[in-house]
Design a protein around this nucleic acid. Structure first.
Length: 209
DNA sequence: CTACCGATATTCT
DNA sequence: GAATATCGGTAGA
């Protein structure tokens, strides 16, 4: 494997843009993974050095190496020691970033999904990033795998602006107020907003010129 | 709605 | 060695 963006195959040209731009384009997309098909209803963007809330903010470490790898790969990390969370790598060439898949609606493989989260209502099966990883069967070998074109179908035609809502990110201490959480307006499978108990307000984004 | 706590890999000092 | 964490489940107001 190489590090040079110029050598990347470009299997996912749509994902070679900042994560905050790609994220809303993933809403309504259908993801097929681990025997389950999911319609994405909530996502969240994480970029690199300019985003203090991102795992990639302080450069490449073993855990976050995938965020620096080719767009279209799955970045899968262990949250709080027990939940596997899935991201789609997305960034401009030479940079880093990913879109966290926060929630979705199971549209196929319902029995398998239910078996992976016994006792859950269908609505709650993938309502939250840890739950979403669980119903898709994410595990330690998931990190770094490349999505096939047949595994992620972007919404076509694209969703209207009106169908998409946006707001602050969930569970972050730093830069939580960057409005990079996107969800489908009115969708029941979107997770409840939870602010970090000690979230610090984001500094002003762009000082006027 | 809010608050707490389990659980542990990763990162920082 | 200590602090942190892209969370989820539950308890209680």
């Amino acid at each position: 494997m190489t590090d040079w963006p110029e050598a990347w195959s470009g299997a996912w040209p749509e994902l070679r843009a900042p994560a905050s731009v790609v994220a809303p384009m993933l809403l309504g997309a259908v993801l097929s993974w681990g025997g389950v098909r999911l319609r994405l209803t909530e996502v969240e963007a994480y970029e690199d050095v300019e985003d203090p809330g991102s795992h990639a903010a302080r450069g490449r470490t073993a855990r976050v190496a995938t965020m620096f790898d080719e767009p279209g790969r799955i970045y899968c990390y262990l949250s709080h020691g027990l939940h596997r969370c899935l991201n789609v790598v997305a960034h401009e060439p030479g940079r880093a970033g990913a879109v966290l898949l926060r929630a979705g609606e199971v549209v196929d493989g319902l029995d398998l999904a239910r078996s992976r989260r016994p006792g859950s209502s269908d609505r709650d099966l993938a309502r939250g990033p840890g739950r979403l990883g669980a119903v898709l069967g994410a595990d330690q070998v998931t990190d770094g795998l490349m999505l096939g074109r047949d595994q992620l179908g972007l919404a076509d035609p694209p969703l209207s602006e009106q169908a998409i809502s946006r707001g602050p990110r969930v569970g972050l201490r730093l830069a939580a107020d960057r409005p990079w959480r996107y969800w489908l307006t009115g969708e029941r499978t979107v997770s409840p907003y939870r602010r970090h108990a000690r979230a610090v307000p984001d500094p002003p984004a762009e000082p006027p010129a």
